[in-house]
Structure formats: structure tokens, C-alpha cells
Amino acid sequence: MKTLFEDLLFLSIQKPRDIENFVKNASKEVEKLNLPDGYYVEWGGSFRNLISAKKRLSILVPLALLLILVMLYGAFRNYAQVFLIFLCAPMALIGGVLSLKLLGLPFSISAGVGFIALFGISILNGVVLVTYFNRLLKDGKSPDDVVREGTMIRLRPVLMTALTDIFGFLPMVFSTGLGGEVQRPLATVVVGGILSATILTLIVLPSLYRLFIHKMRPQ
């Protein structure tokens, strides 16, 4: 038992790691034990809270996305526009996942909460662009003028939103003090996701709007 304790202690101080990966590695060491009949090992504490939170998150994330879809349809009444705006979410997802990978951070509950906030911010930028595109289209502008003029005019508010969020979360990305293990994944997801969402939204979304302009006409 002493040897097992020393192995687990070595695992914990070998390098910084999240609790889920630590428990996975520690479980492999525990499996080597020949426990008497009637004895078993159960992981509790923070690990149990993590598993419970992940189950709740698996319900909340799809529910949040579904509510966003319902509100988008209520605002635009156009399936093509709703789908186009909702594409901003996977655009943000790309940056969030890559930023976690680059910084070597695991997916955690705080990262999941960051993705929920990120989806809202990125979709809001899509709403800003498409709303103005629709206004220009109603004014009789040509398709090319709609996307060109609309993107240039809405470039400033989109960038202001992105930069405000990025600079607000940036100190948390490099946080090493108390609570840093919670702040860093959340902030990393938001900063990386906003960067990719802003760039792709300003390029991909106007291009797709122009390509499917016949389906984008407001009803």
C-alpha cells in the first residue's frame, strides 16, 4: 500500500495535469492491487463533482443551442438566414479547440462554459451582419453592393465587440494564481474562439450570403 501511495504521489507531482487525467492514470495503478472480496475503490471529491457537472453540461449545451435557434428563427423567419447565422458557432468552435490544444489545456467544465458564452458572442456578430445585409437588400442594392457595403459598415462594431472581449479575457489566459485552473480554460476558449469567429465571419458569412442571395431575401 505504501508503494501504491508513493506511485500516486509521483503521478501528482510529475507534471501539472487536470484531475480527470490524473484519476485515469491513478486508476491504472489501483487496478494492480489484489483487493480482498467485498472491497472496492471509488473516486470521490472533486472528481465526482466533475463527472456530475459534465452530465449537466451535456444537457445544457444542446439546450442553449436549441434556444438560440428558436430565437433566431423568431427574429428572421427565414431558414436560410438562421442556418447562415448559426454557422458562426462552428467557426468559433475551431478557434476554441485549437487554443486549448496549443496551450496544452484539457477540456474542463470551465472550458465548456466558455464555449456556451463563445457561441452567443459569435452568433451575435452574425446577427449584426445579416440584419444590415437585409436592410440594404430591401433598399434595392445589388447583391455585390449588399455584401461589400454591409461588411465594411459593420466591420467596426464587429471588431469592437471582438477586441473588447479579447482584452477583457486576456489577463485570465495567463493567470497562474489562485483560481487560475478555472479561469485559464474559460478565457482561452473565449479568446481563441472569438479570433477565429471574427475572421471567418467577416469572410465566410458575406460570401455565403452573396452565393445564396435568392434564398436570403427577407420575408
Rank of each mutant, 00 (worst) to 15 (best):
N21W: 05
N21P: 11
F22E: 06
F22T: 02
K24T: 09
N25Q: 13
A26K: 07
E29S: 09
E29F: 15
V30L: 14
V30K: 06
E31I: 04
E31Q: 15
E31D: 15
L33F: 03
P36S: 09
P36D: 03
Y39W: 13
Y39A: 05
V41T: 15
E42A: 14
W43V: 11
W43S: 07
G45L: 08
G45M: 11
S46T: 12
F47A: 13
F47Q: 13
R48N: 10
L50C: 08
S52A: 15
K54D: 08
K54A: 09
K55S: 14
R56D: 04
R56M: 05
L60K: 06
L60Y: 14
L60Q: 11
L60D: 10
V61N: 01
V61Q: 01
V61A: 04
V61I: 14
P62I: 01
L63M: 10
A64R: 00
L65G: 05
L65M: 07
L67E: 04
L69C: 15
L69P: 10
L69W: 11
V70R: 02
V70L: 12
M71S: 12
M71Q: 09
Y73T: 12
Y73C: 11
Y73W: 14
G74L: 13
A75I: 06
R77M: 09
R77A: 11
Y79G: 02
A80H: 11
Q81A: 11
Q81F: 01
Q81K: 13
V82E: 12
F83M: 10
F83H: 04
L84K: 07
F86C: 00
C88E: 06
A89Y: 07
M91G: 08
A92R: 09
A92I: 13
L93C: 08
L93K: 04
I94P: 03
V97I: 14
V97T: 07
V97H: 05
L98P: 11
L98D: 09
L103W: 11
G104I: 11
G104P: 03
L105M: 02
L105P: 01
F107H: 11
F107W: 13
S108P: 03
S108T: 15
I109L: 08
I109V: 13
A111Y: 00
G112H: 01
G112Q: 00
G112C: 01
G114W: 01
A117S: 12
A117G: 09
A117H: 02
A117V: 08
